[in-house]
């Protein structure tokens, strides 16, 4: 049908990456989340691939106006894959709407999981812990080094994921969905993330009891005599696990859980047990 093959240049792919990197969440909203962000990133791509066919052009826009939400850096691999699929489709290959939607909806959850664990759950707290320890001394290198490391690590990661996605998309999606590479990455990221979160919980959740039990002449400090003997950091651990229990097992909203934490703090603080 197309006499000349439509080809996306490297410049097109890179341009879409930067448009995504800066604008993915510019109209973030409860209904469709990053949907218009994706259309925005693909603007020149859609024009180039479907500009000569009005029907296909409108269909392509509508295709990406659907709900889409993932972690935008590591998860940028998905729009990368989809770029390659759209390129094939525009050249008359049998890439269906279902295939494109399937890749987007099927991968956005897993990659949001990997991405958020590595970026917000692991890298950010580590860099922050570093930056805060320097910054709290009044050294402006704290925020500066934090900022440079954040950009210096995340931009290359995001760029590589996006370009890798495009490459994978050209090889065929069977390869992406079939292999267990994604599963292995998720497993590894989850494991490392959980370990780092354990360390953060120990370092940053701070709960201790100033209570003193008086038994006649005997004075016993609850924190040092009881809790620290049982298990160091047992209170921060208990609070973190209780929070997780409320969020996960009781399916409570984060704001509700925060309200409960505030009540615990207020009551415990007022009674002098925390």
């Amino acid at each position: 049908m197309a006499e000349k093959r439509k080809k996306l240049s490297k410049g097109d792919i890179v341009r879409a990456f930067w448009r995504w990197t800066f604008f993915s969440h510019a109209n973030y909203n409860y209904e469709r989340l990053e949907a218009t962000g994706l259309v925005f990133a693909y603007k020149h791509i859609i024009k180039k691939l479907y500009g000569d066919d009005e029907e296909a052009y409108i269909a392509a826009i509508k295709r990406h106006m659907q709900f889409f939400n993932t972690e935008p850096h590591v998860g940028g691999i998905i729009p990368g894959i989809v770029l390659a699929m759209e390129e094939e489709r525009a050249n008359g290959e049998p890439v269906t709407d279902e295939a494109i939607n399937g890749v987007k909806t099927g991968l956005m959850g897993p990659f949001a999981g990997i991405g958020d664990t590595l970026w917000q759950g692991t890298l950010t707290p580590i860099l922050l812990a570093f930056g805060i320890s320097i910054g709290s001394q009044g050294n402006l290198l704290g925020p500066l080094v934090y900022t440079l490391l954040m950009f210096g690590i995340m931009f290359p990661v995001a760029y590589l994921c996006w370009m890798k996605g495009y490459e994978l998309g050209k090889d065929g999606i069977e390869k992406i969905l079939g292999g267990n590479q994604i599963k292995m990455i998720i497993t590894g990221a989850s494991c490392m993330g959980a370990i780092v979160l354990g360390a953060l919980s120990a370092q940053f959740v701070s709960v201790k009891s100033p209570a003193v039990i008086v038994l006649g002449a005997l004075q016993m400090e609850v924190q040092t005599a009881v809790f620290d003997k049982l298990f160091l950091g047992i209170l921060p651990l208990a609070v973190t696990l209780l929070t997780l229990y409320m969020l996960k097992n009781r399916q409570m909203k984060a704001t509700t859980v925060m309200g409960i934490l505030i009540i615990i703090g207020a009551v415990g603080g007022a009674l002098g047990i925390l």
């Binding site: 919980s201 701070s206 859980v257 934490l261």
Partner: peptide, 18 residues
């Protein structure tokens, strides 16, 4: 006290996400 408890929320939300 509340300030000391609040990091638990972010950590637990990360754990739930995993």
């Amino acid at each position: 006290v509340i300030g000391g408890l609040l990091p638990a929320l972010g950590i637990a939300m990360n754990l739930r996400a995993i």
